[in-house]
Amino acid sequence: MDLTQHFIKTKQPFADGFRWFLRHHKDGSNDQDLLDALVDAGRVNDACWLLDQFGPTNETLTLDHLARRHRVRGFVAVAADSVRASSGISAGAQINCAMHLEAGWGIRDGESIHARGAIRSGESLSAFETIRAGAGYGVFAGLNVQMEAWESSARVRASGRPEGLLSGWWAGARDV
């Protein structure tokens, strides 16, 4: 989707974010390039606002390594190494990770969550389709959850119980 100055202005953006857009993308931008630029610039709140206004993109974000303190959401995530986020991870289509996948909060996906290494989530894990760790690795949810909040905050939901689920409360298959 092409985003022009006029089009973004009709959505009544925050003044600071709009000034940043004018400085860095005065001739406009497509939605994925703008999302990538905002995340790279540390303007995650502006990227989340953009996703709230225009919805997720179906583009693929390919990374060699991701280690951010912020939420990543709205796209297919493909990582050539490990993915670690101290907050949460939410993707619109699928998450494929060449090694370990780890989030301090939850991991949520519109399709599937696959890693060749371990999958570790501080809170819940949720995928519409499958959750699959690599051969010999486990799936862990609720690593940062207090015992009294276990049933509501350490849930694991997918189309079927993940093989190697070692931590987390299996909440059953997702409704299709």
Rank of each mutant, 00 (worst) to 15 (best):
Q5T: 04
F7I: 05
I8P: 06
K9L: 04
K9Y: 04
K9R: 11
K9A: 10
T10I: 08
T10N: 15
T10M: 15
K11E: 12
Q12I: 07
P13S: 10
F14V: 12
F14G: 14
A15N: 15
F18G: 01
F18L: 07
F18T: 03
R19C: 15
R19A: 15
R19S: 14
W20C: 03
F21E: 03
L22M: 03
L22C: 15
H24C: 14
H24G: 06
H24F: 13
H24P: 02
N30H: 07
N30G: 08
D31A: 04
D31K: 09
Q32G: 15
Q32P: 11
Q32I: 09
D33S: 10
D33A: 10
D33P: 04
D33T: 08
L34Y: 09
L34F: 05
L34Q: 00
L35M: 05
L35F: 06
L38G: 01
V39A: 05
A41T: 02
A41N: 07
A41K: 12
A41S: 09
D46F: 08
D46A: 02
D46G: 12
A47P: 02
A47Y: 06
W49H: 07
L51N: 02
L51S: 05
D52P: 02
G55N: 15
G55V: 00
P56Q: 09
T57F: 11
E59T: 10
E59L: 06
E59Y: 03
T60W: 07
T60Q: 10
L61C: 07
L61A: 09
L61N: 01
L61G: 06
L61F: 08
T62A: 09
D64L: 06
D64H: 02
D64M: 05
D64I: 12
H65W: 13
H65D: 14
H65A: 15
H65F: 11
L66S: 07
A67E: 14
A67T: 07
R69N: 12
R69F: 15
R69G: 13
H70G: 00
V72S: 07
V72L: 03
R73L: 02
G74Y: 07
G74V: 11
F75E: 05
V76P: 04
V76N: 11
A77Q: 11
V78Q: 10
A79F: 13
A79N: 02
A80K: 01
A80G: 07
A80F: 02
D81M: 06
D81G: 10
D81I: 03
S82D: 09
V83F: 10
S87Q: 12
G88R: 11
G88C: 09
I89N: 00
I89S: 09
A91I: 02
G92Y: 00
A93K: 09
I95S: 13
I95N: 00
I95V: 08
C97F: 06
H100C: 08
H100G: 01
L101D: 01
L101G: 05
L101M: 13
E102G: 09
E102N: 10
A103V: 00
G104H: 02
W105T: 11
W105P: 09
G106C: 12
I107C: 01
I107S: 03
G110S: 02
E111M: 14
E111F: 14
S112E: 11
S112D: 12
